[in-house]
Amino acid sequence: MPQAHLKVWRGGNDGEYVEYDVEYEEGMVVLDVVHRLQATQAGDLAVRWNCKAGKCGSCSAEINGKPKLQCMCQMGTFEAGETITIAPLKAFPLIRDLVTDVSWNFRVAETMPELKLSPPDADGHRRMHQIDIDREQEFRKCIECFICQDVCHVIRDHPENQSVFAGPRFFTQLANVAMHPLDQNPSSATVAHGFGLDYCNITKCCTEVCPEGIHITDNAIIPLKERRVDEYYDPVKALIRKISGKK
């Protein structure tokens, strides 16, 4: 059996990297190896995980410096004998080992607008066409692994922005509401509010790391920015509004 050389963060903020050699089998992912490490050498190694199938978004970590899901990182992608460094997400307060306090994300979730749908048709059905919900369904693939939140430099490097900036995960949620064919929220609750969208400088790291392949920047953030331009910055639209006297 091949051996993996792991370097894993152990402890809290005053912890350190500890090196381990762990045997593994072909076809395993990093999380399998971490589990084997846990069962054989480090019984108290703290790691979050649930489905081990890339569907729940629990096992986020930074592997060789890149934010990833441990369950979706195949051992075959490493060179033989390569040191694999596994660190906790760095944008969030460390609890212990590979587990961080991601509660900020849940606090942001409370502030996001809720969908307010127009009433159903007389027969009790709501009619929406597939072509009108394709975009929103892409956003709803989100598994809330918070890797996009972790990699986003707006909060990763400047935690003080957490009070004004919702982060990529919540921009997809905002786009879901803003683009919903039946939603009745006023713009002041969605696009015009913005949730710190202006802080994003579209450097696209969120899109690069998204394990679900959601085009966060191109399909959520930029379209939202463009909707804000409609409201505030479009010279032609402003002129038309002025002439027609409409708000």
Binding site: P67, V151, D157, D198, Y199, E208
Partner: peptide, 15 residues
């Protein structure tokens, strides 16, 4: 680059 710390002390993006 992604997950590489930036030098600026503060950041307000395009706001």
């Amino acid at each position: 680059a992604c997950a590489v710390t930036e030098p600026a002390k503060s950041y307000s993006g395009e706001s």
